[in-house]
Design a binder for these strands. Structure first.
Length: 294
DNA sequence: CACTTGACCTGTCCGC
DNA sequence: TGCGGACAGGTCAAGT
C-alpha cells in the first residue's frame, strides 16, 4: 500500500524526527526482514548518527555517519513510526483525536526497535512481514539490483512528458496498468495511484500500451503528477495499515475518485464504479468514462 | 527478451 | 459460532 506519496510522507516525517539523532540500541530478531548480523549492527549502527533521510521509488534510505545506510521497504503493511515523550503528550493531548492515530507504539507486528541516545524510539512494524530493512555500505547502494533497474522518479523536475512516453516503448503488448505498475518503467506507482491516474486520463486499464495514443499518454503524465502531488499534500492514502512517521493516517482516500469506490457514482458521469481484475490486481474503473479502444 | 503467474505473509471478511 | 477460502498488493523468481 505505501506507494510514492506515502513513502515520501514518511521520509519527510523522519527527516524532521530522526535526523541528527544517535542510535543507542537496535533490537531485531527477524532474519528474513533484517538479515544483517548483530556484529554488523554493533559495529556500524550502534553509536552512529543519522545524517540524511532519502527516498528512491518506494524505498527509504537512512544514511549513517558510519558509512553505512539502513534501507527500508515497507511493502504493503510496513510502518516506520517514531515516539518520544513529546509525541506521547501529542497522542493524549487535547485537539488530537485518537482515531487519527492508529499506531506509534510497539505491538505484535514490531520487527525492529531502534532506540536513540535520548531514549526516543523508532519502530519498524510490519503485520504481513513482506517489508524489510537492510544494513549496507552507503557506497554500494547504487549496485543493488533494484536501484540498477528502477525507472525515473515521476516528480523529478527533469522528468518530462516526452521522457514519460519514451519509457513505455519497450512495454507495447502489455496493459497500460501493468506498465504503470512496472517499477522499471516509472518508479513509485502502485495500485491506488495507477487506478486514480488512469481514471483521470480516461484510459481503460486493460488498454494495450500500443493502443494508447500519444495524446492519452501526455494526459496520463500530467494527471499522474497531479494525483501524486495531491496525495503527498494529503499525507498519503490510508487504505488500512498505512501511517506516517508519527503514527497518523493519511487522508487522500477521502479524495479518491475510483479507488475502493466500487458501486458508488463516478464523480464525472454518475455511472456506477466497477471493480475488475487487471494485471492480477483489483482495479477500479468507470466503465462509461474509461472505454477500451475498438 | 517480453510477459504472466505464483510465492511470500497475516488479518479480515464472506458464505456455509 | 466456527471454518474454509478469497482477498488485500509490492516485488522477485520461475514459468510460458
Amino acid at each position: 500500500m505505501p506507494e510514492l506519496p506515502e513513502v515520501e510522507t514518511v521520509r519527510r516525517g523522519l527527516a524532521k524526527l530522526v535526523l541528527g539523532r544517535t542510535i543507542a540500541q537496535v533490537v531485531f530478531d527477524w532474519p528474513k526482514g533484517f538479515p544483517n548480523s548483530q556484529t554488523d549492527v554493533n559495529t556500524f549502527v550502534i553509536g552512529a548518527k543519522i545524517v540524511s533521510v532519502q527516498r528512491r521509488a518506494k524505498v527509504l534510505i537512512l544514511d549513517l555517519d558510519s558509512g553505512y545506510s539502513l534501507i527500508v521497504h515497507l511493502k504493503m503493511t510496513g510502518q516506520l513510526v517514531f515516539t518520544d515523550s513529546q509525541s506521547d503528550d501529542l497522542r493524549f493531548g487535547a485537539g488530537h483525536p485518537s482515531d487519527s492515530l492508529i499506531n506509534n507504539l510497539p505491538d505484535t507486528s514490531t520487527r525492529v526497535t531502534i532506540t536513540f541516545r535520548d531514549e526516543s524510539k523508532l519502530f519498524f512494524n510490519d503485520q504481513r512481514k513482506f517489508g524489510w530493512m537492510k544494513l549496507l555500505p552507503t557506497a554500494t547502494l547504487p549496485d543493488i539490483p533494484f536501484f540498477q533497474k528502477v525507472g525515473p522518479e515521476p516528480l523529478d523536475a527533469s522528468f518530462t512528458a516526452d521522457r514519460f512516453v519514451e519509457r513505455f516503448q519497450r512495454r507495447q503488448k502489455t496493459s497500460i496498468k501493468a506498465a504503470l505498475l512496472d517499477q522499471t518503467v516509472i518508479a513509485g506507482i502502485g495500485n491506488i495511484y495507477a487506478d486514480e491516474s488512469l481514471w483521470a486520463a480516461r484510459i481503460h486499464p486493460n488498454t494495450r500500451v500500443v493502443d494508447v495514443t500519444n495524446d492519452q499518454l501526455n494526459t496520463l503524465f500530467s494527471e499522474l503528477r497531479l494525483v501524486l502531488n495531491t496525495a503527498i499534500k494529503k499525507g498519503g492514502s490510508t487504505n488500512k495499515n498505512y501511517v506516517n512517521a508519527q503514527g497518523k493516517k493519511g487522508s487522500y482516500m477521502d479524495f479518491a475518485n475510483v479507488f475502493r469506490r466500487e458501486g458508488q457514482p463516478c464523480l464525472r458521469c454518475q455511472s456506477s464504479i466497477d471493480k475488475i481484475r487487471v494485471a492480477g490486481r483489483g482495479t477500479h474503473i468507470c466503465s462509461n468514462c474509461q472505454v477500451l479502444p475498438t
